[in-house]
Design a protein around this nucleic acid. Sequence first.
DNA 1: TTCTCTACTGTGAACGCTCACAGAAGCATG
DNA 2: CATGCTTCTGTGAGCGTTCACAGTAGAGAA
Lengths: 343, 343
Amino acid sequence: MTMSNTGGRRRPPTIHDVAREAGVSRGTVSRVLNGGHYVSPAAQEAVNAAIRKTGYVVNRHARSLITGRSDSVGFLLTEPQERFFEGPNFNVLLSGCTQALAAHDIPLLLMLAGTKDERRRITRYITAGHVDGVLLVSSHSGDPVAEELRAAGVPLVQCGKPMGLGSKVSYVAADDRDGARDMVRHLLSLGRRRIGIVSGPLDTPGGVDRLAGYKEVLTEAGIEIDERLVVSGDYSRASGEAGAERLLAQAPDLDALFVASDLMAQGALTALHRAGRRVPQEVSVGGFDDSVAATEATPALTTIRQPYDRISAEMVRLLLAQIGGEDPAAVILPTELVKREST
Amino acid sequence: MTMSNTGGRRRPPTIHDVAREAGVSRGTVSRVLNGGHYVSPAAQEAVNAAIRKTGYVVNRHARSLITGRSDSVGFLLTEPQERFFEGPNFNVLLSGCTQALAAHDIPLLLMLAGTKDERRRITRYITAGHVDGVLLVSSHSGDPVAEELRAAGVPLVQCGKPMGLGSKVSYVAADDRDGARDMVRHLLSLGRRRIGIVSGPLDTPGGVDRLAGYKEVLTEAGIEIDERLVVSGDYSRASGEAGAERLLAQAPDLDALFVASDLMAQGALTALHRAGRRVPQEVSVGGFDDSVAATEATPALTTIRQPYDRISAEMVRLLLAQIGGEDPAAVILPTELVKREST
DNA sequence: TTCTCTACTGTGAACGCTCACAGAAGCATG
DNA sequence: CATGCTTCTGTGAGCGTTCACAGTAGAGAA
């Protein structure tokens, strides 16, 4: 607005320029910038006008140098290289966190740790204080990097319940057990009795909890657990396909399938289709997540919705709280049954 | 390794500590840190040892304050909110760029501009010099934000050919026209003559070029362009489905379909399936991108592979060059025909 | 010897901000 | 009128680097 400013960059205005323009001191400008306490309305006004006029934007480096904060956080994804962003969930979490942080004017640094080397490099980067905190997403929870960061005193929030329960670390997770219960109850309400499950990996709490919910409801309903109806996968599409195939071989009389992720459920649908089982007429199929895979599947998947938007919002909230000095905390969010064509 | 360091953070070592430890001055340490020119081998050695011993990591804020650089770059995605990461391509580009930058120890800041407000906030953030440069990805090229950044003198590399050719801006793109030519030639080689196209949006160079390639090859082959065989979509799955439906209505005798993105091709497959046309027996279908959508489709899609890994690597290379003072440049990368089940 | 040139090293001054402190002004209380 | 308290403001110091400059030592040339 003020000048033509075409072409190369000119030296940007400093807090000093603003102070001179407003006829006050640096200190007063700084106070206005940081909440405006102990500043007279007149000065407040003058400073804001000067900021608008000069187009001043704070130099974050200078600020960080003295405060010791970087006012930025890292979003760390620890996955084998080829699986970055494989699950559609990562996208949703990433964009959710970015936007939640944007509301606080905090930039998000993306960190991808695929190899051991990258892991080391990133850990070093983080512990050096280049970010104020870390949002950690990794499918195989109980990640060693989490323990390392915690030990270094870096504020940390994990997505999904971590494996080692002893370590005091913040996390946000959906209520896996309750979600699984809802789904199995739903399948029972359709008259299904031979319900198979393709669970998640059993070395993760999420995998364990969903399986537990499944067993719980069946037992409550007076149905004995048949181990031939239980297999586990690794959340990948291929493992869902293989899992369903194994179940069909072990228990050909199954009339429903609870698959612990939508991606695996897609694979299961393929296997069922190939085996000539019609969904939902002969076999009801329920997924988990409510990712895009659920709506893209044919037939569209009945599933348990994980509230990804709330998860990312809570992760950011917890992280900022922790950066602000509060203690780590855990948040469990409720899930929701979404009925579609597959049941 | 050195100390127990459990619990809260301690004051990190500074360049001063390293200098004292190595028995040299700050200046010498700084020189070692920045390339090591004009430093004796002995000093070099001593400084490196001291760095290892103290666990020193440079304070980027202090460095940035004086150099004026931030040694970080932004990855800017300008899309309507709900379409962030819709295309699987974004993921691949994002992870590719992150890793390419990691090799230079440069963090990537993720910036999502969905609304006008976010756009303004982010533009302000960027022009304030908080990042050294921007990697811009947006489906609707000719983005106003590009022009704004260029005018502010911010180093910028776009993914995909930009609309306004006059503006001197760096970009990296796959050879859309050549890719389209390859695909149509492939379809011709299968004996197909009534080849329909669902092009991309015609207000983007990518959309235009793929259509141009299609027309070019047909004309060379002595086949007249039938406008009933030409429709355009917006790269979404739904628009591919709608496009294929329209083509089937306008030209029921079509025997092949070139769909300008894999996602749209998935939609087209659905439409063809519903219309009872068998793929590839009755209708050959070719996609574009070679995204995960291509392998997930049934039947798996023959497609034109965009070299996403090379695209992201080139984007980073061009951006760093531009930050280093070089002029903007354009890079066009070759595509490759990938044959699968759909043709 | 003396001068010049090269290779290397140390030092002070920034960079733009925040923070602690000192001080001023206004107002009520003793 | 002194005293205290509250609200506001300005000032100097310092955060941890880099950069320009001055200075030293040693080698080679005059």
